[in-house]
Design a protein around this nucleic acid. Structure first.
Lengths: 109, 109
DNA sequence: CGGGATCCACAGAGATACTG
DNA sequence: CAGTATCTCTGTGGATCCCG
């Protein structure tokens, strides 16, 4: 029988590739960027701020980022429900690196 | 003939997104990284250095990077053919930003 | 208000074979 | 040596509707 092809584990030894995996999705940066400009944001606040994102993509991306410890989720048991998102320390630490990349982008554009 | 689909350029204004577009592909970073460690490299040298890349992906990615002025191509009209690739100044300038990102990746990994 | 589930389109990645 | 030309496949993103 045929072996299922085993793909090299995606998060290989290179920290750069690892970093890019985290910020690489279509909506990851917009969310990180939005959160970097504001201590905390609620779900619908994010949605309003990020043009064109759907509920599904927002939810999914938030989960990914949370799983990677870039953002944290704080849920308040109230009526109506309130959920706030904010950058973790890892997330904050990412910002300077992103700024440098952005500067590069600005220069060569 | 077929229409080329024109994609909405909603991302153009952000230099960060722009930068990520450039380094975002699967093989872009490996190529940039390889070239950053060596002044110039020939086609087959690159291919040997980048594990698993096919001719097609190498050629295509090299073209993309050249179109974005990250690398430059120098062809010598000899027999056998010789083509050398190297980072442009833009490409060199990108390296520090990548290093910072890599450092971040190393810390949180 | 803050999500989740299902289904589907499409661009990017790849295999394979051929060429100046 | 340094590429091209097709075709196929798969993963990511997205539209739409539903739920506590």
């Amino acid at each position: 029988m045929k072996d299922k092809k085993v793909y090299k584990s995606s998060l290989d030894h290179c920290p750069l590739t690892f970093a890019l995996k985290i910020i690489g999705g279509k909506w990851r940066l917009p969310i990180i960027w939005a959160l970097s400009k504001s201590e905390t944001m609620r779900y619908n606040e994010l949605k309003r701020n990020i043009d064109g994102i759907t509920n599904m993509m927002l939810t999914q991306t938030l989960k990914d980022l949370e799983a990677n410890n870039i953002i944290k989720r704080q849920q308040y048991m109230e009526v109506p429900p309130r959920v706030e998102y904010a950058l973790t320390e890892n997330g904050e630490n990412l910002i300077p690196a992103l700024k440098q990349l952005a500067n590069w982008g600005k220069r060569i554009k």
